[in-house]
Amino acid sequence: MLINHAKLMQFFSVAREVVGRKKLQKMIYILQSCGLPFEEKYQFHVYGPYSEELSLRTEELCNLGFLSEEKEEKSNYFQYHYTITTDGERFLEQFDMKIASLEEKSAMILDKSARFLELVATMLYFKQLPREEVEKKVHIVKPKQNYNETELKEAWQLIDALMDA
């Protein structure tokens, strides 16, 4: 009964505001990879894991008036801002839902840049490989991003912290 919609709304309620669709995509993937029960199906795309299901579900939540979407014009593209509405809060109240460690894990990624979250999400996509192999894969699938040693190290630290939280 709209459980997957409610789970997303729970995330938006915790996040208060999400700036950027790319960031939203990567955050939900990271939380899902850390064991949180988001069920949106992801595939690998040029910019890392991407879920059409998440895009469409977010669109539904906007159309239903549960989320507000603000479009901001940047130099050569648009950026979208999402916040939960009063109707959205009312919708959420009807579910007795508590996602364990959602607040804790969300807090660890909310202030990170989209570029960094793209790196973390990509590393998690290859999580079944040994760490060295993961780093090699990152450079193969994202040669243009030129992620450096420091970024990779920070990403591993964040992944470890998320898994422990």
Binding site: G20, R21, K22, Q25, K41, Y47, Y50, S51, E52, E53, S55, L56, K74, N76, Y77, F78, Q79, Y80, A114, E118
Partner: peptide
């Protein structure tokens, strides 16, 4: 979920 064409955000 179906693949509507979305220009999307930069690098989405």
């Amino acid at each position: 979920p179906y693949d509507f064409y979305r220009p999307g955000e930069e690098e989405e």
